[in-house]
């Protein structure tokens, strides 16, 4: 969790040589590969992010299309979580964080004055690293979002939304008989799927996932990965992951970040079989990270 809340220490750790981050980043050169796609759902153009005086993201361009999973990989502190949190303005909650550049959803600038963060977050849902169900019943957890936004007309509507969301998150069969039990009583993997169901219940258009499996065991991870693949049919998905295998399994495109810079982006297959940038190759072959 520390990574998102305070990415600075790890950034500094990476700064082993006497060069400043800015110099290192400049030496990385332009992004390799094609960050743009046709008809993007979300689009990131020349985005810089600062925490106070320190720059965490350097001029990143990236598109996220409908019905695809984009994975963001890179060593810790490379800014991938920071970028993800910019996509639904979760970084607003950190007072010293400043974002410049253009981020759009369906062509509308999400950082413009007219865009409302509440509405944005309803459209762009987020799943966090550690499962964080509310200390309420399973039903209430899922019903939370629709209730907030007034998406249901009546109780029956709400029941429908809850059941559908749980079904889509592939957890309905496991919990259908105990919807009144506390969400925290579930196992870690179930909790994370509950959180996904909670996100789906708001009927978002994009789902952001911040290392959703890092706190889970392999079996739970496999289930979530399967789920991500199914969700792709309806949503645009961006996932930050530490595991290259996971990126290879679930995503169609992969973006490799280093020290806040997008180093290389392209089809997942290409990146993993034939990386063009030296750093990407080093990372993928396990020389660091």
């Amino acid at each position: 969790m520390n990574e998102e809340v305070n990415p600075l220490p790890s950034l500094e750790q990476d700064q082993t040589s006497e060069q400043t981050i800015e110099e290192i980043v400049a030496s990385l050169g332009d992004t390799v590969g094609q960050p743009r796609v046709e008809d993007p759902k979300m689009s990131v153009s020349n985005v810089d992010v600062f925490y106070g005086d320190k720059q965490a993201i350097f001029g990143v361009d990236l598109d996220i299309a409908n019905n695809e999973v984009v994975s963001m990989i890179g060593p810790s502190g490379c800014g991938k979580s920071t970028l993800l949190r910019c996509l639904n303005r979760m970084n607003d909650t950190i007072p010293i964080c400043r974002v410049s550049g253009e981020l759009t959803l369906d062509g509308e600038d999400i950082y413009s004055k007219d865009t409302d963060p509440v509405l944005l977050r309803a459209r762009v849902g987020m799943v966090f690293q550690k499962p964080n169900p509310f200390p309420k019943s399973i039903y209430e957890n899922v019903a939370y979002g629709p209730r907030l936004h007034g998406l249901n007309r009546n109780k029956a509507d709400l029941d429908d939304i809850v059941v559908n969301s749980l079904k889509k998150a592939g957890i309905y069969n496991e919990v259908k008989n105990r919807l009144d039990e506390s969400g925290t009583s579930l196992s870690g993997g179930q909790q994370q799927r509950l959180c996904i169901a909670r996100t789906i219940a708001c009927s978002p258009e994009v789902i952001l996932m911040d290392e959703p499996c890092s706190a889970l065991d392999p079996i739970a991870t496999a289930k979530i990965e399967e789920l991500i693949d199914e969700l792709r049919e309806n949503y645009a998905i961006a996932i930050v992951t530490h595991s290259m295998q996971q990126a290879a399994r679930v995503s169609q495109r992969t973006a490799y970040f280093h020290l806040g810079k997008l180093v290389e982006v392209g089809d997942t297959d290409t990146i993993f079989t034939n990386p063009r940038h030296e750093l990407t190759e080093n990372y993928i072959t396990g020389r660091f990270g």
Binding site: A122, R123, L151, C202
Partner: peptide, 16 residues
């Protein structure tokens, strides 16, 4: 349906 969601949320924003 998606358009609908956006509209509903937008409608309640002022009150919230």
């Amino acid at each position: 349906e998606k358009l609908n969601t956006t509209e509903v949320v937008r409608g309640s924003l002022k009150r919230r």
